[in-house]
């Protein structure tokens, strides 16, 4: 693997020298390949480098599949608490690049919350290390968390250390009710001491998930216990759409009222999935057509900052902007 790391550094340096563009590809489960870029494959650049269950930290190569990661952690009764979606052969590197988090987001936090450190190659093929393996670390700017979501456009992250958590027992309940009422109720419940780890609305039902010891739920009117499959249906969400419709992912405040065309509400109300022909009028909308494209809706100032940061990490513009 050391050889492989060197090769990757060489590939980046060569691309910089020859003015070529590289597209970083992990398991190939998310972003499509572009003709104008050479592939920098992370396939097989995998494996657990260190794992200390009692320190709650695991360090893995970026090409490690989520499947392998889950397996290794489960053996020690632990998990990645941000519940990354499985798109088939998904890697932790790709998940990090797209900053993907599952249904427990408002309760247990998102992917970047669990990132402790990264090793990376910048656009000049230089090895850099940011953060570390410590849960608490405020030395230097938090580059490791900043790059979560950068879609491989700034640097090649080759390794990362993640905080892991104990596996918890979770059970799911549901109540039949209208969507608008469910949004209010899931917010109200999240403000109580009930140890929730999921809140969603799908096909006429409000679903909520609870972890660990908790008061009996099924003695409440209309509450039924169901299996945990709903969270897999919503993460990743791949609904069948009517012809002409598109799927839009909206990030909103959890209490945002019902939005027209919504086919599912996730993440305690902060995530709305809308099926419609036209883009919903909302500040945080992403067209979700399995291509994980950015929204390109940054204001002028933020855009300038992002362009500036790109230059700092990748001055020769080696990595493809996605």
């Amino acid at each position: 693997m050391e050889q492989r790391f060197k090769q990757m550094a060489e590939q980046i340096k060569d691309a910089a020298a020859e003015n070529k563009t590289l597209q970083i590809v992990g398991g190939g489960s998310k972003v499509p390949l572009y003709d104008d870029a050479e592939v920098l494959s992370m396939e097989g650049y995998s494996g657990v480098l260190s794992y200390e269950p009692s320190e709650l930290v695991i360090t893995v190569r970026a090409g490690t599949t989520l499947e392998e990661l889950h397996q290794v952690l489960a053996e020690k009764n632990q998990m990645v608490a941000f519940e990354p979606p499985e798109y088939g052969n998904s890697t932790i590197g790709g998940t990090y690049a797209c900053a993907l988090t599952g249904p427990a987001k408002p309760f247990r936090g998102k992917l970047r919350d669990y990132v402790l450190g990264t090793k990376l190659l910048d656009g000049q093929g230089r090895e850099l290390n940011f953060g570390g393996k410590m849960i608490k670390n405020v030395a230097g700017y938090d580059v490791s968390r900043m790059l979560a979501g950068s879609k491989g456009s700034m640097a090649l992250v080759t390794e990362m250390s993640l905080k892991v958590m104990p596996l918890v027992e979770e059970v799911t309940y549901r109540i039949e009710m209208p969507e608008c009422d469910a949004i209010v109720l899931m917010n109200k419940m999240a403000g109580t001491s009930l140890p929730m780890s999921g809140g969603a609305y799908y096909q006429g039902h409000f679903y909520y998930r609870v972890m660990g010891e908790h008061p009996k739920q099924t003695n409440r009117v209309g509450v039924e216990a169901v299996d945990n499959s709903i969270w897999k249906i919503l993460n990743p969400f791949k609904p069948k759409l009517e012809p002409g419709q598109k799927l839009w992912r909206l990030d909103v405040e959890s209490t945002n009222p019902c939005i027209d065309g919504t086919i599912a509400v996730g993440m305690g109300g902060t995530r709305r999935w809308v099926a419609s022909e036209h883009k919903p009028d909302h500040p945080y909308v992403t067209l979700w057509d399995d291509r994980f494209l950015p929204r390109h809706n940054d204001g002028k100032g933020v855009k300038k900052i992002k362009q500036g940061l790109k230059k700092v990490f990748d001055p020769h513009h080696v990595f493809k902007d996605l």
Binding site: A99, K110, R112, V138, Y141, D142, V143, R145, M146, L147, A148, G149, S150, K151, M154, D251, V252, P283, Y284, T286, P294, R295, N297, D298, G299, G301, V302, I305, K306, L309
Partner: peptide, 21 residues
């Protein structure tokens, strides 16, 4: 000049960067 860095933002996580800066 004013900027807002929000957890709902797309791409590079500038909100995380500003924490501890």
């Amino acid at each position: 000049e004013e900027y807002v860095f929000d957890e709902k933002d797309d791409g590079v996580d500038l909100l995380a960067l500003l924490n501890g800066s």
